[in-house]
Simulated scan of single mutants.
Amino acid sequence: MLWIPDIIIQEDASDSGSVIKGPHLTLNSSGWVFSKAQQRLTYTCQLNLVKFPFDTQSCNITFTSMSSDVHTMKLGTLTNDTALTALSELIMITKGEWSLRSMEVVRDRTTNGTKSYLIYMITLERKPMLYVVNFIIPLSYLLVLDLASFFISQSSGEKLSFKVTILLSISVLLLILQDMLPSTEDSLPWIATYCVAIFALVGISVLEAMLVSFLTELGHQCGKKAKGSENAREDIQLEEDFHKEPSGDEERGKVTPEKTYMPLDWPVAHDLLKRILDEVKAARLQAGSKDKDKNERGCCKSLALTVDYVFFFLYLITVVLFLMIVYVSWIKTGF
Results as ranks from 00 to 15, higher is better:
Gly76Pro: 04
Leu90Asp: 03
Asp81Gly: 08
Lys74His: 10
Leu303Ala: 15
Leu174Thr: 03
Thr77Glu: 07
Phe54Val: 00
Phe150Glu: 06
Ile170Asp: 09
Ala86Tyr: 14
Thr94Ile: 05
Leu2Val: 13
Asp249Leu: 15
His220Lys: 10
Gly223Ile: 08
Ser18Gln: 01
Ala13Tyr: 07
Val268Phe: 06
Leu160Phe: 08
Leu238Asp: 11
Leu145Val: 00
Glu11Val: 02
Pro263Gly: 03
Phe311His: 11
Val132Thr: 05
Ile236Cys: 06
Ile136Lys: 12
Gln46Asn: 09
Leu305Glu: 03
Leu177Lys: 08
Ala197Phe: 07
Ala86Ile: 03
Gln38Cys: 04
Ala209Asp: 08
Ser183Trp: 04
Ile119Trp: 00
Asp81Val: 15
Asp291Thr: 05
Leu314Met: 10
Phe162Gly: 00
Asp179Ile: 04
Val70Cys: 02
Asp265Arg: 15
Lys274Ser: 14
Trp3Asp: 11
Thr260Pro: 01
Ala13His: 13
Ser116Cys: 11
Val255Cys: 02
Ile276Cys: 08
Leu272Pro: 02
Leu49Met: 15
Asp55Trp: 03
Gln286Leu: 13
Arg297Leu: 15
Leu147Val: 03
Asn80Pro: 02
Gly113Trp: 10
Ala197Pro: 00
Lys294Ala: 14
Cys59His: 02
Leu47Ser: 12
His270Phe: 15
Ser229Trp: 07
Gln46His: 06
Gln286Thr: 02
Leu25Ala: 05
Asp249Gln: 08
Arg101Thr: 03
Leu41Phe: 03
Val202Met: 03
Ser140Phe: 08
Leu78Trp: 12
Ser329Asp: 05
Leu168Ile: 05
Thr193Asn: 08
Thr85Ser: 10
Ala86Lys: 10
Tyr261Pro: 10
Asp235Met: 05
Thr62Trp: 01
Phe214Leu: 09
Glu230Tyr: 13
Ala232Glu: 05
Thr85Gly: 13
Ser149Cys: 07
Ser14Pro: 05
Thr114Ala: 04
Ile176Phe: 04
Glu279Met: 09
Phe214His: 06
Tyr131Val: 05
Arg252His: 04
Ile119Leu: 09
Gly288Arg: 07
Asn134Asp: 12
Leu218Lys: 11
